[in-house]
């Protein structure tokens, strides 16, 4: 693992919200490194700081203090427009509720990040097609979100996340709105992407989802309480078959 380059390096990250006179330490000194082609699950109960961590990793939010390096670039010193560019080029988001634009076809939805790309992209349609094929939806490109099943919607969202070949794929409860069968489908897709070399970070509170990852980071009260390979993660009560391979 350590021979692979570092994609994410967090050093003593703190994120403090002020609510009235009260200070809420959403993240309280988080330091971790994530290497290329890792498949990481971030677990924790609500209020543990995992969502805040996710927003920070996705450059949607800024740390109050600490250093966050993404691909060896210090993001903490970047301006808003540079952060937007980082989100566009290096980060692919997958959300719990898919966040597809309802009036656009699957293809148009997948194309969306290319609109905001710095480079003039002439083969947008082609790229979007390829991304949809990669998630197994090559046939349903012209359908609108309301004509797609939940699993298909999430796969469109994954295709959208992948279109700019991001350094990291950030998935926030990607199976939260799906039944168990489709959840398995999506997790199978993630596994395949991981095998293809994609770095994936997934936030979840479900153990049987998290155990698909190779490394599990557990959080509580804004701190990392355990960070172990899935096999060594001892908190398991039961381990679903085929998990943690």
């Amino acid at each position: 693992m350590s021979e692979k380059p570092v994609v994410i390096r967090l050093h003593d990250i703190r994120r403090i919200y002020k609510v009235g006179s009260e200070q809420i330490r959403a993240l309280d000194g988080v330091s971790l490194e994530i290497y290329q082609n890792e498949y990481v699950a971030v677990m924790g109960h609500s209020g543990s700081g995992k969502s805040t961590l996710m927003n920070l990793l996705g450059c949607l939010d800024r740390a109050t203090s600490g250093v966050y390096e993404l691909d060896k670039q210090d993001t903490t010193r970047m301006g808003n427009s540079d952060l937007a560019r980082v989100r566009n080029e290096k980060i692919g988001f997958v959300f719990q509720s898919f966040e597809l634009l309802p009036r656009f076809s699957a293809l148009k939805n997948v194309e969306l990040p290319l609109i905001y790309s710095r480079q003039a992209v002439w083969n947008r349609k082609e790229l979007a097609h390829k991304a949809l094929e990669r998630v197994g939806l090559g046939e349903r490109t012209s359908h609108r979100p309301n004509q797609l099943s939940g699993g298909e919607k999430q796969r469109v969202a994954v295709a959208r996340a992948l279109i700019n070949n991001p350094s990291i794929l950030l998935a926030d409860e990607p199976t939260g709105n799906l039944d168990s069968k489709t959840s398995e489908e999506i997790l199978g897709l993630f596994r395949r992407l991981h095998e293809e070399g994609q770095t994936i970070i997934m936030v979840t509170h479900e153990a049987d989802v998290a155990c698909h990852a190779k490394r599990i980071i557990r959080m509580r009260d804004g701190k990392v309480i355990s960070d172990l390979p899935t096999e060594e993660d001892t908190v398991w009560t039961h381990r679903p078959a085929g998990a943690g391979r």
């Binding site: 949607l60 808003n80 427009s81 937007a84 989100r87 080029e89 969306l112 905001y116 790309s117």
Partner: peptide, 16 residues
């Protein structure tokens, strides 16, 4: 609002 949020998440800046 959500659409705007999403657009920002996938890289739309202030100007866009």
């Amino acid at each position: 609002t959500r659409e705007i949020g999403l657009r920002k998440a996938v890289g739309a800046g202030f100007a866009a």
